[in-house]
């Protein structure tokens, strides 16, 4: 049990810290957009890289957010029936519906991985005038899928614990405790 808790804690911490670091990327995007506007408008010298770098940053920023948001219970759902369920029923229902979650993430991992490998097979560069390497950014899709899957598995384990012991082990409880 302690080993399980340690692993769950590690997954939580991983997604948590990664998200906190990534969250600063909004400042980077802001500065990039602003500097591009200034260069173009004031100096009449737009860069070939400004817009694309902003775009690539945005891609990494949003795709890697999946696991972090799951860890904090931020993926929105319809809670109309759900809130009426008991803790145990919730856990059971979550275990059942997680099939769709795992199918989606699984495909994102396998086919996102395949997309990235394909790109790495010729060290793909962007076709733009700037031409940065694209493969590291495509690699973020399977990476994001792994982070999300890890968090999903952690949630599944917690649901199983809740179902068998009747004690709420969900990360929502954890969030409440941590923010209290």
């Amino acid at each position: 049990m302690r080993a399980i808790n340690a692993i769950l804690g590690f997954v939580d911490a991983l997604n948590d810290h990664l998200g906190r670091i990534l969250s600063y990327a909004v400042l980077l995007m802001f500065l990039l957009v602003l500097s591009e506007v200034i260069r173009r408008y004031i100096f009449n010298a737009p860069t070939v890289w400004g817009q694309e770098l902003t775009q690539l940053t945005f891609g990494v920023y949003v795709i890697l957010s999946g696991g972090h948001i799951l860890r904090w219970g931020g993926h929105v759902n319809v809670d109309i029936l759900y809130t009426k369920f008991s803790t145990r029923t919730k856990a059971l229902v979550d275990i059942i519906t997680s099939v769709l979650f795992f199918l989606f993430c699984g495909m994102l991992l396998i086919y996102g991985g395949s997309l990235a490998l394909d790109s790495m097979s010729y060290w793909e560069h962007s076709i733009s005038a700037w031409g940065p390497p694209l493969w590291p950014f495509k690699l973020m899709i399977p990476t994001a899928a792994v982070l999300l899957l890890l968090q999903g598995i952690a949630k599944l384990i917690r649901d199983i614990i809740t179902l068998t012991t009747g004690v709420d082990a969900s990360s929502q409880e954890l969030v409440k405790k941590e923010t209290a």
Partner: peptide, 10 residues
């Protein structure tokens, strides 16, 4: 699945 409470994106 929505009514069962799975997040919309998944």
């Amino acid at each position: 699945f929505l009514v069962l409470g799975l997040p919309l994106s998944f």
